[in-house]
Amino acid sequence: MDSLVVLVLCLSCLLLLSLWRQSSGRGKLPPGPTPLPVIGNILQIGIKDISKSLTNLSKVYGPVFTLYFGLKPIVVLHGYEAVKEALIDLGEEFSGRGIFPLAERANRGFGIVFSNGKKWKEIRRFSLMTLRNFGMGKRSIEDRVQEEARCLVEELRKTKASPCDPTFILGCAPCNVICSIIFHKRFDYKDQQFLNLMEKLNENIKILSSPWIQICNNFSPIIDYFPGTHNKLLKNVAFMKSYILEKVKEHQESMDMNNPQDFIDCFLMKMEKEKHNQPSEFTIESLENTAVDLFGAGTETTSTTLRYALLLLLKHPEVTAKVQEEIERVIGRNRSPCMQDRSHMPYTDAVVHEVQRYIDLLPTSLPHAVTCDIKFRNYLIPKGTTILISLTSVLHDNKEFPNPEMFDPHHFLDEGGNFKKSKYFMPFSAGKRICVGEALAGMELFLFLTSILQNFNLKSLVDPKNLDTTPVVNGFASVPPFYQLCFIPV
């Protein structure tokens, strides 16, 4: 009986604490739906499609509103004006990374994606500088992407125009580009180590996009005490870190300090320079996690976009025909596509942009946080508050993009057929937390897609009208449904 009384008292205290925290903070924060004790607004949000729920709530509470995930307040920004004001106009104040408990377990605050403060700034600055020195957006990395595009075309030829699921092959190409940047090595598509790495990356994007992960991140005790797919994700990350550590040891034994070959060499050189400046942010643990982040951000996002792009091109054969006509006119058949071609191919450029806009790969991006107490639109948001960005509300804005739910390359073309930029184009987020590999991803999408369409016609196994382009999961990332196609050599 005594234990029951204690339990009831504990629960009562928890409920009172929950109510007090919510009521004391709500006077400062933007308005929002009334949260339930302990669980907050979790029942009012469709976990399978958070973005749709945010759109519905914005119609009631406006472009800036507050939700509670458990006891934790989260300020939501919906629509271009609110997102721009926060991420661009007040970029420094909104540059923090929001709480992501599962990532905390995986990387302990290291790396480039989930770190904060001085650690994040130094690692991000170093990573950007190193990638630029190796030619991100310049010639040397373009050579690597072109080489991988040629290998991709050869792998597709091996399908002999038979029906195939493109998931694996389209994942190999961007993964190999990242391998060449980090390890100075590309792998054969049949290499077992490479296959294991690909498998872990593919599993992780599916797990991260599941409703279960949303629950884990908002009720963090689940991570330590409950079984579930989150444990598989943590094991996959541990596998990748151990693999990278092996490569780091190989580099330490063979590195030429006067001739760095890749990202690992550059990081080890930085560690050597910083060894007298303790404590340094440049450690082996930081290198492991930064490399894992580059793999995660640079492989599955690009391969998922490529997979979605081919599905949309199957669905819209008239678009595919126009792209192939432009390829034939500008590039021809006797040389590989290059980035200089893009400025002469406005329709193809528009298609690449429209694919990214339409699929809305990361509907709410990753959570941000404010780095200080900030007054925002007459609300006071306390330091450390998590900020949720609705990228969907920007990419699918119906004023900027008429009929935003329709796939239409003319969203990025003017009346004369010239490519038209849009400030609403934010597939990689915006501001200080914009994806480090934005330029690389854009290069890969253009070169891989043009190389495929230069060499193959795409054949659907069903009537294009019957192809479903609805994402199968739409949590962290929008993942396309399973499909097969035939690559018919031109």
Rank of each mutant, 00 (worst) to 15 (best):
P409T: 04
T305H: 05
A309T: 08
H251T: 04
P37D: 01
L77R: 00
T66I: 03
E85R: 06
V177I: 12
L197E: 00
P166R: 01
L361F: 04
V330Q: 10
D414G: 06
L391D: 05
L19S: 04
K235A: 09
E285R: 10
S140K: 07
N474A: 10
E122S: 14
R26T: 08
I99V: 14
P260V: 10
G70Q: 02
D414S: 10
F282A: 05
G171H: 14
V436R: 02
E438D: 09
N41D: 03
R157D: 05
S209W: 05
D89T: 11
E354F: 00
L36V: 10
N289A: 14
C372A: 09
K121I: 12
G442Q: 15
E148G: 00
K72F: 04
C10D: 00
R186T: 04
L29G: 03
A441V: 09
K84P: 01
L131D: 04
N196K: 15
L71Y: 13
Y358L: 08
L314H: 01
Q454G: 05
T305E: 06
L67I: 11
S3H: 08
L197C: 03
T348V: 07
K190V: 08
C372R: 15
T302V: 08
L467D: 00
E326L: 00
N259K: 09
K275C: 07
C486V: 07
N41G: 03
E203M: 08
K232R: 09
A161V: 04
N455P: 00
I99G: 12
N398I: 12
G27S: 12
S12E: 01
D188G: 11
M136C: 14
S286F: 03
L453V: 08
G79R: 00
Y379S: 05
I223A: 13
P317H: 09
L15A: 09
S115D: 11
E300N: 14
E274T: 08
G46D: 12
L102P: 08
E325G: 07
T302D: 00
F110N: 14
S12V: 12
R124P: 05
L170G: 00
K118A: 14
R433A: 05
L102G: 07
V394A: 08
V5I: 06
E203V: 06
N176L: 00
L57V: 13
E142L: 02
R124V: 04
L440G: 00
V8R: 00
R105G: 08
I123T: 10
A441E: 04
I207V: 09
F239V: 13
R157L: 14
S286K: 05
G70M: 05
G70Y: 05
G417F: 10
Q278T: 14
N41M: 01
V462N: 07
L461G: 08
L461P: 13
P471R: 09
P163A: 15
S303T: 08
I178E: 01
Y80E: 05
S180G: 07
P409G: 01
V83E: 01
P227Y: 07
C151H: 09
L294R: 00
N202Q: 11
R124A: 04
F94V: 06
T450S: 12
V6P: 08
V145R: 00
E154P: 00
T299S: 13
F425S: 08
K84S: 10
K121C: 06
I169K: 02
I387R: 00
V76P: 00
L201S: 05
L7A: 13
F419T: 03
H353V: 03
A441K: 03
S210A: 05
P346R: 04
N133A: 10
E444D: 03
L43P: 15
I389W: 02
K138L: 09
K121E: 15
E354L: 00
L71Q: 10
K158E: 08
Y189S: 04
N403E: 13
A350F: 01
E300H: 12
G384D: 11
E354C: 03
M443E: 02
G111L: 03
Y80S: 05
P163T: 07
H251A: 07
Y68M: 07
L7S: 12
L17S: 06
S127F: 13
T290P: 02
V462P: 04
K200E: 02
L440M: 08
H410D: 15
S280P: 10
N418I: 10
Y347S: 00
P33R: 01
L310E: 00
A173S: 04
V292P: 00
K383F: 02
Q484P: 04
K315R: 07
A477S: 13
A106F: 13
F239E: 13
W20L: 10
R186P: 02
L388R: 01
G32A: 02
V177T: 06
K383N: 07
A238R: 09
C175A: 12
I215T: 03
E93H: 12
C10E: 03
T229G: 13
I381G: 00
I374L: 12
I359H: 05
V8C: 08
N116E: 08
Q252G: 07
L9W: 09
D265M: 03
D463H: 14
G384Q: 05
S115V: 06
A86C: 14
N218P: 11
D224F: 07
P409H: 00
M339P: 03
N258W: 13
A103R: 10
K28A: 15
L461H: 08
